[in-house]
Computed example of a mutant assay.
Amino acid sequence: MTAPELLAKIRLNGVVPRHVAIIMDGNGRWARERMLPRPIGHRNGMKAVREVVEGALEVGLEALSLFAFSQENWQRPEGEVNALMSLLEEYIQKEADELHRQGVKVQMLGDLSRLASAAKAAVDRVVAQTAGNTKLTLNLFISYGSRAELTRAARLIAEDVAAGRLAPEDVDEAALSARLYTQGCPDPDLLIRTSGERRISNFLLWQVAYAELFISPVLWPDWSRANLYEAIVDFQQRDRRFGKVAV
């Protein structure tokens, strides 16, 4: 089906996830299959980001989360890491004004202290520019790992308890959620992984507890809004019971 046909089907079905999270995978494989350098795959993956953001706006998502760069990715060859950081700066430079015009609030989530000064300045600029927007929240996860995020939340809770700001009996799920990078954002309803891989890869381990999973064989640089719509149509067919017995 074409993108317009899929979009019409989504609107007919009516139920749209509030929050879609995507593990963007396959840039390197896409480049290798074409005998191209890996950075070319990442560059083409940047085009797919724009397609999916446009699709999220058309569907009416509340939040879109994209896993762009993991903490483990710092262990890749220096040339590839530098290319990824340059692409981050380039993406912000090219897209910031359009994202702002369309009402997208950009959040960069992760251990941003590891970013080079130029990349960090670009991140701060787009976050500040779009802070007041409300049409779509775009969470870009940079230098992110879920175990590190949970460890950070536990440390913040321990500090608050030690300082008397939080009573031990008040440490609950809400207290931990309030100390995650995603505080204030609804948990993902739908988690998509591209390129056919079947791993969560240390992404939003707490937040995806009840997310529906969709595995796409399509490599990330080949993704379009039609692929997003296919995943949402599939989501609309799910019976979400949240652990309850079906009736």
Results as ranks from 00 to 15, higher is better:
residue 229 Y to I: 08
residue 227 N to R: 02
residue 66 L to N: 00
residue 173 E to A: 04
residue 166 L to F: 14
residue 74 W to P: 08
residue 39 P to N: 03
residue 43 R to Y: 03
residue 170 D to A: 04
residue 134 T to Y: 13
residue 172 D to L: 05
residue 25 D to L: 05
residue 185 C to A: 04
residue 44 N to E: 15
residue 99 L to R: 14
residue 150 L to R: 11
residue 117 S to E: 12
residue 202 N to L: 08
residue 122 A to F: 11
residue 181 Y to G: 13
residue 183 Q to P: 15
residue 169 E to A: 07
residue 47 K to D: 14
residue 225 R to V: 06
residue 202 N to G: 14
residue 198 R to Y: 11
residue 208 V to C: 07
residue 76 R to E: 03
residue 91 Y to E: 11
residue 23 I to M: 04
residue 166 L to D: 08
residue 61 L to D: 10
residue 144 Y to K: 00
residue 134 T to K: 12
residue 195 S to D: 04
residue 33 E to N: 12
residue 230 E to P: 09
residue 35 M to F: 14
residue 4 P to G: 03
residue 100 H to V: 01
residue 134 T to C: 00
residue 56 A to V: 12
residue 207 Q to I: 12
residue 68 A to H: 02
residue 48 A to V: 06
residue 32 R to G: 05
residue 43 R to L: 11
residue 152 R to P: 14
residue 31 A to S: 03
residue 178 A to S: 15
residue 38 R to I: 12
residue 130 T to H: 02
residue 46 M to E: 06
residue 19 H to F: 08
residue 168 P to V: 01
residue 16 V to W: 09
residue 113 S to M: 04
residue 49 V to N: 02
residue 187 D to Q: 10
residue 59 V to D: 01
residue 225 R to W: 07
residue 168 P to W: 08
residue 95 E to V: 01
residue 132 G to W: 04
residue 105 K to R: 15
residue 245 V to D: 03
residue 191 L to S: 01
residue 90 E to F: 07
residue 246 A to H: 03
residue 17 P to E: 00
residue 220 W to F: 03
residue 237 Q to P: 01
residue 157 I to S: 09
residue 156 L to N: 15
residue 57 L to R: 11
residue 98 E to M: 10
residue 215 I to P: 01
residue 154 A to M: 13
residue 149 E to L: 07
residue 53 V to T: 12
residue 184 G to A: 00
residue 217 P to W: 01
residue 182 T to A: 04
residue 153 A to Q: 09
residue 211 A to K: 04
residue 154 A to F: 13
residue 61 L to M: 01
residue 127 V to Q: 12
residue 34 R to Y: 09
residue 188 P to N: 14
residue 145 G to H: 04
residue 175 A to C: 11
residue 165 R to T: 00
residue 114 R to Y: 06
residue 129 Q to D: 08
residue 156 L to M: 15
residue 209 A to E: 04
residue 242 F to K: 04
residue 158 A to F: 11
residue 153 A to T: 13
residue 209 A to S: 15
residue 233 V to I: 09
residue 34 R to G: 05
residue 207 Q to F: 10
residue 72 E to I: 02
residue 241 R to Q: 02
residue 43 R to S: 07
residue 203 F to S: 00
residue 196 G to R: 02
residue 74 W to F: 06
residue 64 L to S: 08
residue 13 N to M: 05
residue 189 D to H: 04
residue 178 A to R: 05
residue 246 A to S: 05
residue 121 A to C: 01
residue 102 Q to A: 02
residue 232 I to H: 05
residue 111 D to H: 09
residue 186 P to S: 07
residue 118 A to S: 14
residue 159 E to D: 15
residue 105 K to T: 15
residue 64 L to G: 08
residue 200 I to E: 13
residue 51 E to S: 07
residue 225 R to D: 05
residue 173 E to R: 04
residue 166 L to M: 13
residue 35 M to W: 14
residue 145 G to C: 11
residue 185 C to S: 12
residue 91 Y to N: 13
residue 48 A to S: 15
residue 179 R to T: 07
residue 57 L to A: 02
residue 100 H to F: 12
residue 121 A to Y: 07
residue 196 G to K: 01
residue 190 L to Y: 03
residue 215 I to A: 03
residue 2 T to L: 13
